[in-house]
């Protein structure tokens, strides 16, 4: 214990000589105190972010075995669940984590709405948060199709039907999202690309902006 502490101190001393890192860490993390009046409900956003990190991590693990091919997708997910050590756990964390993330994003949003934190100077926090809510829902929706089960197939069928209500362009948008007239292997490939690259990329970008805005204005303190 003390040996580790000594080693850490020695290494950090050398790093600080060059980069002055410790004051930055202290200012932003270890000595950044939470306002006393803030309740535990102020954690919802941070918890949603934590789950996002877990989703990224478990997602990378699942990606090692997943095949975005209509012939093999279901088999590859079944293989992870039954043959890969702890695969069932990683897969379950990823699927249940999605539900938790949506729940936390909604709780976070409900609190911000109820306490009217969205008012000036935090209008853009709210708007970027709304983008993150949509991105989270889309992540969940696209991920739902990937195991290629009956449930995911019909879920995607119903979900992609929604834009058909748009006047004139509706049917075209539906086909654009499905990459064809019906849910097929092309839909799976499209959802897969969107699920693992497009939406996580967008989410990370908007999240960084969201956090920078919070740092700039400071968090809202209840009176």
């Amino acid at each position: 214990m003390s040996a580790i502490a000594k080693l850490t101190k020695a290494v950090m001393g050398e790093v600080d000589d060059r980069f002055h890192l410790t004051p930055v860490i202290e200012k932003n993390l270890t000595r950044k105190w939470v306002p006393q009046t803030l309740s535990w409900a102020g954690c919802f956003g941070g918890l949603a972010f934590l789950i996002f990190l877990i989703q990224i991590f478990t997602g990378i693990l699942l990606l090692m075995y997943y095949k975005s091919d209509a012939e093999r997708a279901w088999d590859s997910v079944t293989f992870v669940k039954s043959n890969v050590p702890m695969g069932w756990l990683i897969q379950r964390i990823h699927s249940v984590g999605a539900n938790f993330m949506i729940a936390l994003v909604f709780l976070h949003m409900a609190r911000v709405a109820y306490l009217r934190i969205y008012r000036k100077p935090r209008e853009l926090h709210w708007i970027s948060g709304a983008v993150l809510l949509l991105a989270t829902c889309m992540l969940a929706f696209t991920g739902y199709l990937l195991p290629w089960t009956q449930l995911s197939y019909w879920g995607a069928k119903v979900g992609t039907e929604i834009p058909s209500a748009v006047p004139l362009l509706g049917e075209y948008i539906v086909q654009l999202i499905r990459r064809g007239p019906s849910i097929s292997g092309e839909t799976l490939g499209f959802f897969f690309a969107v699920h693992i690259w497009v939406l996580p990329g967008l989410t990370v970008l908007v999240m960084v902006l969201h956090f920078l805005m919070i740092r700039r204005t400071g968090i809202s303190r209840p009176l």
């Binding site: 293989f79 043959n83 695969g87 990683i90």
Partner: peptide, 14 residues
Amino acid sequence: AFPIFSFLRLPKRI
């Protein structure tokens, strides 16, 4: 760490 390192072990082949 346990489930993560377990996951990286070789899967059972049929």
